[in-house]
Design a protein around this nucleic acid. Structure first.
Lengths: 221, 221
DNA sequence: CATTCCCCTTGACCCAGATCAAGGGAAATT
DNA sequence: AATTTCCCTTGATCTGGGTCAAGGGGAATG
């Protein structure tokens, strides 16, 4: 993992597409870099916290624990996205747990600093906009989980995380992908077997190759 | 439906518990009352909109349509809650559809007015806090739907909508409750049959009576 | 008053996907 | 190098809850 330019990084992140350059510069200036190893707990559901995080490089998964111990993935965080921001107001406990899926680089932004930035009119707009985009995302995720089968959810996952391509480098374990799409490793494994038999994909190590017509007939509304 | 005092109403709404009296007064002042009949579409997914709504009296359900036409409920709005606010920033299309479940009274707040209020430091804090509470709610809902069976979801529904009681007046149709807990009327009907046979509840018209020990052993974490 | 319509219920059936179990292989630990 | 551990896969089996179908009853409409 190389050193990084926080400003450059944030500027290129999808998640900040709606955020002005000035706002980004401010964020980059106050971020405290933090490196974490693979499969490390960044914070736990219920922990008190006073910082939000931006994922600079790597991957992070947010989940909640069900009563029986199963872990339900709420969101798979992509590089450039923000997480843990819910802690900043009122209730100061994280509503989800966060683990790194791979060796990752985070930018930590303490609550106090965010509060200062929120004085800025443009930053405030950007920040609220970002919260609303996240709300849209969560509503979409409910629709995905409740209204689509495992195969469709896998397609959505690929598209959402990496876009529509024919070649992917996927650093996540299959177990984690299974959790991300709301199923168990066995079922996901069987899905891959079937898609392979149907000549729709090949999976070699971390590399996934899709058939040319893989995305045909798959509509995102 | 009687006339109403917008300020009084908002003040007593759970959803605004974290919002200062001054903020509430501002909201009440600019709200435009709107009455809707039962089962009326308030707005549709994809519609352009420039207002958010507060549900003053009655009930509203927010849903998204799956590709096959099924409607997946994202949230059942309680009286006192806000909805449609996501339209206010960036993308100005509603991400969900909203229908009234009963004769209802809404307070409409145009975008422009909200923008004015956001200049106020305290209102801004309150507003962001409200967005974050909603985000928490959606994360919880994902956990409910993905990690609990229909029976548990029904318990959560009761608790969330009306609190833990032994007697309820429930103005919603069973069909709508089924949708709210993420199932179909047949399954919900069978669940009620079983709970009745197990002497856990009686349902008479709009009135639901639970056994004394109904809530025993039901943990909300 | 008849008819349509919708809500609700109950029965019969089915299926996607979870559970349980077993094993093979790669990587990490001693 | 041996052992433990974890990931992944595949098989066999089970089941919650969805689908399809068929009424019955109440409200609304002609």
């Amino acid at each position: 993992m190389q050193s990084f330019d926080a400003h450059e990084l944030l500027k290129n992140a999808d998640f900040f597409s709606g955020i002005s350059d000035r706002s980004i510069r401010s964020l980059a200036a106050i971020g405290i870099p933090k490196r974490v190893e693979k499969r490390k707990l960044i914070f736990m559901e219920g922990d008190e916290g006073h910082s939000l995080y931006i994922l600079a490089q790597g991957g992070v998964q947010l989940y909640k624990s069900a009563a029986d111990g199963r872990e339900i993935v709420i969101k798979t965080v992509k590089s450039g996205e923000i997480f843990g921001e819910v802690v900043l107001f009122e209730e100061n406990k994280y509503p989800v747990s966060a683990v790194s899926l791979e060796k990752s680089l985070l930018l930590r932004l303490p609550k106090q600093q965010i509060d200062c930035l929120l004085i800025s009119d443009s930053f405030r707009r950007d920040f609220i906009g970002m919260l609303m985009r996240k709300q849209r995302y969560l509503a979409d995720r409910i629709l995905y989980l409740a209204g689509h089968d495992v195969e469709e959810r896998f397609f959505y996952f690929l598209e959402e995380q990496y876009g529509r391509k024919e070649e992917y480098r996927i650093p996540m374990s299959k177990k984690d992908i299974a959790a991300a799409i709301g199923t168990i490793p066995e079922t996901f494994s069987r899905l891959l077997l079937r898609l392979k038999q149907e000549q729709k994909l090949r999976w070699e190590g971390e590399n996934l190759y899709l058939a040319e017509d893989f995305w045909k007939g798959f509509e995102t509304q």
